[in-house]
Computed example of a mutant assay.
Amino acid sequence: MGINNYGNEDLQLAYEDLVDEGLIDPSSDEAGVARQVISKGSDSLTPKQRYIYETLFEPVLVRRAKELEGQRIVDSNHD
């Protein structure tokens, strides 16, 4: 994936899904950094914030995307 692979709207929806599913705490550092990327873009991140995004938020985001894709495939095979 990569920090720039999501548009702001897609990242906002993915962020909300992660919070709704309890996969990230909205008061955590990674959630704050994700909200900054959503509102100000990845270029606004400091090196420390980029590290937090890439090591704490992005792995959860990627894992959830894979789960949802797997579920979509399973659901489509039942038709």
Rank of each mutant, 00 (worst) to 15 (best):
Y51S: 03
A31C: 05
K40C: 07
E21W: 07
A65G: 12
Y53M: 06
A14G: 03
E69S: 14
V19D: 03
E67G: 03
Y15F: 15
T55H: 12
Y6T: 09
K66Y: 11
F57D: 01
G22P: 12
T55P: 00
A31P: 03
F57V: 05
D43P: 00
E54T: 14
N8G: 08
A31R: 04
F57Q: 01
D75F: 05
D25W: 06
V62C: 02
G41L: 05
H78N: 07
S76T: 10
D20L: 06
G2P: 02
Q49W: 01
S27M: 13
P47R: 09
S27T: 15
Y51Q: 09
Q49G: 02
T55A: 08
D25E: 13
I73L: 15
N4C: 02
S44G: 03
Y53K: 05
Y6H: 08
E16I: 11
R64F: 11
Q12S: 11
E30T: 05
P47T: 07
V74D: 13
G22Y: 10
D43M: 10
P26G: 02
N5G: 12
T46G: 01
V19L: 02
L61T: 00
I24G: 03
R50K: 15
K48V: 11
R72M: 15
Y15R: 04
G32L: 11
G32M: 11
G70V: 03
L61K: 08
N4Q: 08
S27Q: 15
A31K: 03
V60N: 02
L13E: 15
Q49T: 08
D79M: 14
Q12A: 11
E69G: 06
I38Y: 00
G7H: 09
F57W: 13
I24H: 07
R35K: 13
S44F: 03
G32N: 14
Q71F: 10
D79P: 01
S42Q: 10
A34S: 12
Y6D: 12
D25Q: 06
L56H: 11
R35Y: 04
D20A: 13
Q12D: 12
I38F: 01
L68P: 01
L61G: 00
S76N: 08
Q12Y: 09
V37D: 01
R64G: 01
D75W: 03
Y6S: 07
S76H: 05
G32Y: 10
V19S: 01
R35A: 08
V19E: 03
P47I: 05
A14V: 04
E67H: 04
N5P: 01
G70L: 13
D10Q: 14
A31G: 07
A31H: 05
D25V: 11
S42Y: 09
V37Y: 02
D75L: 10
Y6K: 07
N4D: 14
S42P: 00
K66E: 15
G70S: 13
R72V: 08
R35I: 07
G41A: 03
R63F: 12
Y15S: 03
D10G: 05
K40W: 04
S27W: 07
T46H: 02
R64D: 10
L61I: 04
G70P: 01
L11E: 06
Q49V: 03
I38P: 00
E9R: 08
N8I: 10
L61M: 13
G41V: 08
R63P: 00
E16M: 06
A34W: 07
A34N: 07
G22C: 08
L11D: 09
G2Y: 02
E21Y: 11
K48G: 01
D25P: 04
F57I: 01
N5D: 15
I38S: 02
H78W: 09
A65P: 00
